[in-house]
């Protein structure tokens, strides 16, 4: 069981009153706007939820796990997510099986 774009579009249809097509487009535009900002080097701060932050990683030594051969892992930019305090405390209260 996991939440998908289709579930989100359904909710927008029910709660915001967008029609099905508008709701689907809205969900796509929403995630695309976040991707575009990150692609342009802009961190994304969604208060109450969390921040998507870009981090520049330096080149570091790596290894091919199959052959043991040493190959450098190139410098790269990655996205990390820092959940906000509100989301953290809501999730902390979840009592599921520790896994």
């Amino acid at each position: 069981m996991s939440l998908t774009k289709a579930d989100i579009a359904d909710r927008l249809f029910e709660e915001v009153g967008l029609n099905k097509r508008e709701a689907k487009e809205f969900v796509d535009a929403y995630f695309e706007a976040i991707r575009t900002a990150l692609e342009e080097g802009d961190n994304v701060k969604l208060s109450g939820f969390g921040n998507f932050q870009l981090r520049d990683k330096k080149q570091r030594p790596g290894r091919n796990p199959k052959t043991g051969e040493e190959i450098p892992i190139s410098a790269r930019r990655v996205v990390t997510f820092r959940p906000g305090q509100k989301l953290r405390s809501r999730v902390e209260a979840y009592v599921g099986s520790g896994d």
Binding site: K86, V91, Y94
Partner: peptide
């Protein structure tokens, strides 16, 4: 609404994909 739905899902232990 999207952010609230995503937070609620996670608070219930549900994955988002």
């Amino acid at each position: 609404t999207i952010l609230e739905q995503m937070s609620t899902a996670l608070a219930a232990g549900e994955r988002i994909e």
